[in-house]
Amino acid sequence: MVKVNGEDRAAAGFSVTGWLQEAGYQPAAVAVEYNGSILGRTAYDSTILKDDDVLEIVCFMGGG
């Protein structure tokens, strides 16, 4: 299982691009942190998720 935004998800085997699509994120609106480091957009295709990986997917929201 992959920890995605704090929850265990069956994302192992997907590329980051594939997982963003599978889960329904808008790739253009998010930034991704992969195992504690920021993952540049150009690495989304080549990064294949595996068990115990930690993924944070963030976006902008209204705030002060």
Binding site: G24, A29, I57, V58, C59, F60, G62, G63
Partner: peptide, 16 residues
Amino acid sequence: TLAVRRANTKEHENIL
């Protein structure tokens, strides 16, 4: 100003 939060797949509107 904006905040940064975990993205939600149920929320399809992008504030930008």
